[in-house]
Amino acid sequence: MIVAENKPFHDILGLIEDAKKILIVGCGGCVAVCLSGGEKEVGVLASALRMSRKKEGNPLETVEVTLPRQCDPEYMDMLKGYVKEDIDCILSLGCGVGVQFIAERFSKWVIPAQNTKFAGGTIAHGIWEERCGLCGECILYKTGGICPIIRCSKSLLNGPCGGSQNGKCEVDKNLDCGWQLIYDRMKKFGKLDLLLKIEPPKDWSKSRDGGPRKVVREDVKIS
């Protein structure tokens, strides 16, 4: 999932300081799962903003809605009834994708309430960790299912480096060395010989270069 976390409260407050009535849009997708932008978080943020502004003697009116997802045009249609003339701005609790989809669709000033962090998963209740670097060409089959791009602090393809000490990374003594994890896993499966092969430089043109990447599936296009 895309993991995001709320911007500091006072930052959000500053971003909407000129608005009298705002539409707060939550997302029922990834950010609801990582408990930062779902229906409940929309309610908490809206209540906090209203109270803060009421305290300052500058009341804020809020309209709250949570879409099943903010990254699909068909769900964006559901917003049409809420984006009215008197809405001064839209505060999105979606990830960066959601914010942009709203901005592309409606002629209203859109503000992100979150910092979109990474593609990751739930480690335990309340803990999420990055797992995928979205590099565009998966090499997990070469590394026992452990991504060196993300798990290694230097994203080395031929690790470990000299900073690996007792299974930990020199960057942070609490951080597992990604390449130690890879080595242990390959050893467990008797595939250490695969690590002897020198990995050539990665083709980063498939990653975040050359503008937004696109996936096209002709077979599922409707028109």
């Binding site: 209203r50 305290k55 009116e61 309209v63």
Partner: peptide, 16 residues
Amino acid sequence: SPLNSRLVSFPNCKDA
């Protein structure tokens, strides 16, 4: 509470 210490007209808010 600072919210109750002064009279502030509260706008119509469906949720509130």
